[in-house]
């Protein structure tokens, strides 16, 4: 998606706020941005609520496992015991419809899904997976991209040419199609992937995490490399070279600290992007695999129930919008704080 890329590029290239203590300065600016603070608050709240999923699950659990099917279960609505899956009516009695929202926090608040699971509890567990994948893949992506960008930007010449062209190739693939191709391949290997002695099972949350991180590497690489190039030509780096500093020292103690702010500006926007991508892949059934759930898988399951039980897909969608919106607002705030001269601003 060029949209993402450009957003990233146009923010990334301009962030060289140099002050006496730029971080303290930035923090002070961020604290003054009430909208960004509200977004941060909302984000923290969402994370805490999702982390607390087991507590809520304990409250609504039918037989100790909210993530397992409860097709034969019952619940209480208005003091009466009713089945979670309700048989069709008429003479033919075709079909089984899950119970709808009861709006009773302890009994199927948002109703049940296709196999009788409590949607409200799933929502919290799904949030854990979505947030975990989003945050981890964004971090992984930023770390890998930064390392590659440091190497390319610092050594330049052939190294730079090769690495940049490699990134161009990844960049050239349609984002979702590349992710789908990779996921299809990895999921077909029912035994998962073996990277050295590290084993990732196909149904692990790490499969989508790694895929998503991989496809966005060029999108972070480009702005960071630009930044590395501009920092590498600065006087203080040349001074360090003159002093005979090793390449390692040059990269990690001279250049890296000066590109970190670019990466930090990108991070919230990348998390927003990765969360959206995770939900899309899960919707297409190549993301999070059962028994794990994520907001995307719940929306996908809800598709069948859209007209009779719309809350199954409405609720996780609202959660995604809230989370991503908070991340985007926060991202704008962080950028404004770290780079007050940035021209692309919300306010």
């Amino acid at each position: 998606m060029a949209a993402v890329a450009e957003q990233v590029t146009s923010t990334g290239l301009r962030s060289a706020a140099v002050g006496r203590n730029p971080w303290a300065l930035a923090w002070r600016r961020l604290r003054r941005n009430r909208l960004a603070l509200a977004a941060l608050g909302l984000l923290l709240l969402l994370i805490v609520v999702c982390l607390a999923a087991p507590l809520y699950a304990h409250d609504v659990a039918h037989d100790g496992n909210v993530l397992g099917p409860n097709l034969n279960g019952t619940t209480i609505v208005g003091g009466k015991v009713v089945p979670v899956m309700q048989e069709g009516g008429g003479i033919l009695k075709l079909g089984e419809t899950p119970i709808g929202p009861t709006w009773d926090l302890h009994h199927y608040f948002l109703g049940a899904d296709n196999i009788g699971r409590d949607v409200a509890a799933l929502l919290l567990y799904g949030g854990r997976a979505s947030l975990q994948i989003g945050i981890c893949s964004a971090l992984l992506c930023c770390i890998v991209a930064t390392i590659v960008a440091l190497i390319a930007g610092f050594f330049g010449g052939l190294t730079d040419a090769i690495l940049s062209r490699l990134m161009d190739v990844i960049w050239a693939f349609p984002v979702y199609l590349l992710a789908i191709s990779l996921a299809t391949e990895l999921l077909t290997h029912s035994n998962g992937i073996q990277i050295g002695f590290l084993h990732v099972s196909a149904t692990s949350l790490w499969t989508p995490t790694v895929i998503i991180a991989f496809i966005y590497v060029p999108y972070v690489y480009r702005p960071v490399r630009g930044q590395v190039l501009s920092v590498a030509s600065k006087e203080f780096v040349e001074a360090a070279i003159a002093q005979g500093a090793s390449n390692f020292r040059l990269i990690f103690s001279e250049i890296l600290p000066n590109v970190v702010s670019t990466v930090i500006v990108l991070l919230p926007l990348m998390i927003a992007t990765t969360i959206l991508t995770e939900s899309a892949l899960s919707y297409l059934s190549v993301g999070v695999q059962p028994p794990n759930v994520s907001w995307g898988t719940i929306i996908s399951d809800g598709q069948d129930l859209l007209y009779t039980r719309p809350w199954v897909s409405l609720a996780p969608g609202i959660m995604i919008v809230l989370t991503v919106l908070a991340l985007n607002v926060l991202g704008d705030g962080v950028r404004d704080a770290l780079d007050p001269r940035a021209k692309l601003r919300v306010r």
Partner: peptide, 18 residues
């Protein structure tokens, strides 16, 4: 504009269908 940027497109589609 930010809300537009933040909603998954397939979910907007589901809401539209609904």
């Amino acid at each position: 504009a930010l809300i537009g940027l933040s909603a998954p497109v397939f979910w907007i589609g589901q809401v539209a269908n609904l």
